[in-house]
Design a protein around this nucleic acid. Structure first.
Length: 123
DNA sequence: CTAGTGACCCAAC
DNA sequence: GGTTGGGCCACTA
């Protein structure tokens, strides 16, 4: 079997998503971090997009870091309804992450800083 | 191998 | 508040 190196990525994301308690939400960045990919929020989004049909995980509890739903279209509306059913409140299409956020994204992201990188700028 | 895309995120403007 | 630009990586063509 091939692709042994890229095998365990999606399942790890899915497993972390399945740990989100009912009535709480987590951002893609949080899911990625808890899954062992500290600075790859995209992987979480990609894994969820590639989610198999009929899989039993609370995919709707994953939103973006701004506290809003990223998934566009009909599926996005469905996601919002599922969250409201769990008691999560939307204020102008935005969720209060301080109240409903899971996994406390208090961590600082010391990754890309323009200034820090550009300090190295060669003549 | 390269190039393009994505349910993202942050800092700066 | 908005836009721009850079960053990370998995996956597909």
């Amino acid at each position: 079997m091939k692709r042994s190196s890229s095998l365990a990525v999606y399942p790890r994301i899915w497993r972390t998503v399945s740990r989100i308690p009912r009535g709480k939400v987590a951002s893609y960045g949080t899911i990625a971090r808890l899954s062992g990919f500290p600075i790859q929020p995209r992987i979480a989004g990609y894994a969820l997009h590639n989610l198999p049909d009929g899989i039993d995980i609370p995919w709707h509890r994953v939103i973006n870091a701004r506290g809003r739903i990223s998934l566009p279209g009909k599926r996005g509306v469905e996601q919002r309804q599922l969250l409201e059913r769990e008691g999560i409140l939307f204020v102008r299409s935005t969720i209060d992450m301080k109240k409903f956020g899971w996994g406390a994204k208090q961590q600082r992201d010391l990754r890309n800083r323009r200034g820090a990188l550009r300090q190295e700028a060669p003549a």
